[in-house]
Design a protein around this nucleic acid. Structure first.
Length: 700
DNA sequence: CCACGCCCTG
DNA sequence: CAGGGCGTGG
């Protein structure tokens, strides 16, 4: 590492250097090719445990719901379908999950992480949710509950009958599959008192399953699968958090309702606690660290794979499944949000949707009023003093804290542009549903999504000082003096979106042919899809201008994204070798421009007589920044993360020092600089993964 | 080979 | 930006 400069007295430089050390080294240019070389979790993939068509994308049914219902949250899953020999364990739960007043609500303190077990995402029987997500989210009328119970009772009977007739499958044969896992769980659960079958009170990441060992194996398939699992788990966690938070919010508002749900969101057992913070970010951005574990995903992924063919890096099958799952997850998340809002403000559906929409958008432009709740929240895996402004720590933390009743109001005001910022706090409890203002909607939603704290679009963009503590130097002296948006004072009014809900719905109904490069609006079609049981399969097969814009904004966070990372952030894209290359190429081009600009300014500074490299700081009003911002953020509708300024500053200093030292004589003098910069990538806000994000950007 | 990254050119 | 060439590393 460059000692000459980092050793200087430059605050920012030191800060960055420090972070570098603690950073998960993304070793320079050695990109992630080997990201998942560990080869555990193998050996099971070729043995589907149940009809693959029930889980595969080809079934044209939403994957996530299936996964959730079949494995994770599926308490209502009819055991007779998948597990003929099932021990109706669900029975007691089902009875309890009705509207039983006696059932206490368990509000997890933190999100659960993924299970390390053989079937991470399959969830453990004793930790499964008692209710299906959809049930949890919708206001279940007493009437429904009654009928529900009837149905359950019936099912229970059928189950017991079947149970008596069916033969237990050969244990060994299914050891590695989902059924085995669930069976084990059921058996385990049978030994415990009913109450304890529910997930542990304290979401200590899968206390109950920690000891279990994942199936081993080393096939290449496992790599992708593992990643998928990680991602899936991560998203599921977020999903659960949303639900939990929502109920917390409504807790005092409707105790009767709350009771039934939430808590039972089963924690996926097993991951080490810190996975929460670490892996959430690293799992996606640094997949190579993810250990492999076997799971159903693998099993099913393969087969489908052969049919669809494709993609770089991961086994084609896995890749395809990966895309499908990612997409599904994104959509599901959207649906949850929609549902939550719908529940909270039944009469403000359209409103909610709009809000949701804007939230998902990354760049409301000046022309459009609806503002986006930008989330600068950075899912950082490694806390660092250099966190970009707006970084909130782990994604989960952000999501959680943002939505917990207690902190519900604490972040109010974090949304700046659009006048949201000044809005009053959202009452923690008992706020009038009908009186919710758009602003509140926005805030609540953002909080639910964990987008609080900082707005990317914030007109009041002063970075939080605390985040800069690592920089003694007045690096941020100019911060806050620059207004990125001319019209910062926006009304809470929301302009209609390009597509009306109705249109979106109809669009959603259109078959998503393989040929369709149709830009579908996915984010807000959550309701529609929910109601119509539609499967969002509008994966684009080509990169659009929206994607380009998104990529540019992402550049502010990462200069050297791996193809894997890109795949996790462009969920609406059908990745192919070509697409991947194009994306990579884009970033390569971005870097090129970036380095050229910085070098230019570095030389200019040298000519201007600058002596101390440390005095070279890139602020929002500096020429260099303007040039860069113009290139990557033309509309100027995205608030560049402070972290980027730091990186740019360091880059500038590095170039300056190198040139001053005459190193530019060496043909490859830039390489050392590239290497340094390549280590400064930060985590990209989860919001960039939002379904429809790319499309939204187009309109913004 | 293949995937990347950089460089240069259009 | 996209292409093509080149070098590198697995």
């Amino acid at each position: 590492m460059n000692v000459w400069l980092l050793g200087g007295s430059c605050g920012s430089a030191q800060g960055i250097a420090a972070e570098e050390d603690t950073m998960d080294s993304r070793t320079g240019f050695e990109q992630d090719r080997d990201y998942a070389t560990s080869g555990h979790g193998e050996g099971l993939k070729l043995e589907p445990c149940f009809q693959t068509d029930s889980l595969l994308p080809s079934s044209n049914a939403s994957l996530i719901p299936q996964f959730l219902s079949h494995t994770v949250i599926g308490r209502n899953l009819d055991p007779t379908i998948l597990f003929p020999s099932s021990q109706a364990v669900a029975l007691p739960h089902d009875y309890k999950c009705g509207a039983c007043p006696g059932e206490e609500v368990q509000a997890p303190a933190f999100p659960r992480t993924c299970a390390p077990g053989p079937v991470p995402c399959a969830g453990d029987g004793d930790q499964l949710s008692n209710q299906h997500p959809r049930d949890q989210l919708s206001n279940q009328h007493p009437r429904d509950q009654l009928s529900d119970q009837h149905v359950r009772a019936k099912r229970a009977r059928v189950e017991s009958i079947i149970q008596g007739m069916s033969l237990p499958p050969t244990p060994q044969a299914f050891d590695t599959n989902l059924e085995a896992a669930l069976r084990h769980e059921r058996e385990r659960g049978a030994e415990m008192p009913q109450e304890s079958k529910r997930k542990p009170r304290v979401p200590q990441q899968g206390v109950g399953a920690v000891g279990r060992v994942a199936p081993t194996g080393g096939s290449s398939h496992a790599k992708g699968c593992q990643q998928l699992k990680e991602q899936l788990c991560f998203l599921e966690q977020q999903l659960r958090w949303l639900q939990e938070k929502f109920y917390q919010v409504c807790d005092s508002e409707d105790a009767a309702q709350t009771q039934e749900d939430t808590e039972k969101v089963q924690p996926l057992p097993g991951k080490p606690k810190d996975r929460l913070n670490k892996d959430s970010a690293t799992a996606t951005s640094n997949p190579r660290k993810a250990p492999l574990r076997g799971s159903v995903l693998e099993v099913h992924g393969l087969e489908e794979a052969e049919d669809r063919g494709d993609t770089g890096g991961l086994p084609s099958a896995v890749s395809v499944l990966s895309q499908a799952l990612k997409h599904e997850l994104a959509v599901v998340t959207s649906q949850v949000v929609d549902s939550v809002l719908k529940t909270v403000w039944p009469k403000a559906d359209s409103h909610s949707q709009k809000q949701h929409h804007s939230l998902l958008m990354l760049g409301p432009d000046a022309r459009r009023e609806y503002s986006a709740g930008g989330k600068c929240r950075k899912p950082l895996a490694k806390p660092s003093p250099m966190n970009a402004p707006g970084s909130l720590g782990s994604p989960q933390a952000g999501v959680l804290t943002g939505a917990l009743g207690k902190s519900l109001g604490s972040y109010a005001g974090s949304f700046s542009s659009r006048g949201v910022r000044k809005s009053s706090r959202i009452p923690t409890v008992g706020y009038s549903l009908g009186s919710a203002t758009p602003v509140q909607d926005s805030q609540l939603l953002s909080q639910l999504l964990g987008y609080g704290q900082h707005s990317l679009w914030g007109s009041d963009s002063r970075e939080s000082p605390s985040l800069e503590r690592g920089c003694p130097e007045p690096l941020n002296l100019h911060w806050g003096t620059v207004k990125l948006r001319s019209s910062t004072v926006r009304q809470q009014q929301h302009h209609p979106l390009p597509l009306s809900p109705a249109n979106r719905e109809s669009l959603a109904l259109q078959p998503a042919g393989r040929d369709g490069l149709v830009l579908r609006d996915m984010p807000s079609s959550g309701f529609a899809m929910c109601r119509l049981s539609l499967t969002p399969r509008q994966m684009q097969e080509a990169l659009t201008p929206g994607h380009l814009k998104k990529a540019k904004l992402m550049f502010f966070f990462t200069r050297y994204p791996s193809s894997t990372l890109l795949k996790t952030y462009f969920l609406d894209v059908q990745f192919s070798r070509c697409i991947t290359s194009q994306l990579i190429k884009w970033f390569s081009n971005f870097r090129e421009f970036y380095y050229i600009q910085v070098e230019k300014f570095a030389r200019q500074a040298l000519l201007e007589g600058v002596v101390d490299a440390c005095t070279l700081q890139v602020s929002r009003d500096s020429e260099l920044f303007r040039a860069l911002n113009m290139h990557y953020n033309k509309g100027n509708d995205f608030e560049v993360p402070g972290r980027f300024l730091e990186v740019a500053s360091l880059t500038l200093q590095e170039f300056f020092s190198a040139v001053r030292a005459g190193k530019d004589a060496d043909p490859s003098w830039k390489k050392p600089i590239y290497k340094i910069i390549s280590k400064l990538d930060s985590d990209i806000p989860e919001g960039f993964k939002a379904a429809g994000c790319s499309q939204e950007l187009l309109h913004s």
